[in-house]
């Protein structure tokens, strides 16, 4: 039995401690905002925060998350209007939308370390997150917009 802290709440899990956090979140905890895209940490659809830093939950065994604060899209903002979520809506970023949760979680982590990111910072911070629909231009613009609002 291990104890996990997800979005501020304690949860017990007695399954396989090697199960990736993504599948725990989706199949066990019922938090399906984080998505499965590749299973090898290549696409970023599964991005969540561990102690405030973006990680790929598809390659993070649940046992390694013990004692850490895990935040998913469901817990990103109490009111559901994080500056990034607002900017995403203002610029109509999503197309199919499947990768966008991972993109937002990655961008939220980026803005913590780079509150005023340059294009290069955004490239470096966001290039682990694939969008097959190709919304990159709007993702970039939305990150700049959210950074402005935060400042």
């Amino acid at each position: 039995m291990i104890t996990l802290k997800i979005n501020g709440a304690q949860r017990q899990f007695d399954g396989d401690p090697d199960m990736p956090l993504l599948w725990y979140l989706r199949d066990v905890a019922g938090l399906t905002g984080s998505k499965f895209g590749c299973g090898i940490g290549q696409c970023g659809a599964c991005t969540v925060h561990q102690d405030g830093v973006a990680i790929r939950s598809c390659v993070t065994p649940v046992r390694t998350a013990v004692g850490k604060e895990i935040t998913t899209i469901e817990g990103l903002s109490g009111s559901g209007d994080h500056p990034l979520q607002k900017a995403w809506a203002a610029l109509n970023v999503p197309q199919c939308g499947y990768c966008q949760v991972g993109q937002i979680m990655q961008a939220a982590s980026l803005l913590k370390t780079k509150p005023k990111p340059t294009d290069k910072d955004i490239d470096d911070g966001m290039s682990g997150n694939i969008c097959r629909c190709g919304t990159y231009q709007r993702i970039r613009a939305a990150i700049h917009m959210a950074a402005k609002e935060k400042a």
């Binding site: 979520q85 499947y98 949760v101």
Partner: peptide, 22 residues
């Protein structure tokens, strides 16, 4: 430019894709 119907659900992780059906 009317936004897509599912926009808020998508940005809040509430949109139901096939992967999320249960």
């Amino acid at each position: 430019d009317i936004p897509v119907y599912d926009l808020a659900d998508i940005t809040h992780g509430k949109a139901v894709f096939g992967m999320d059906a249960k």
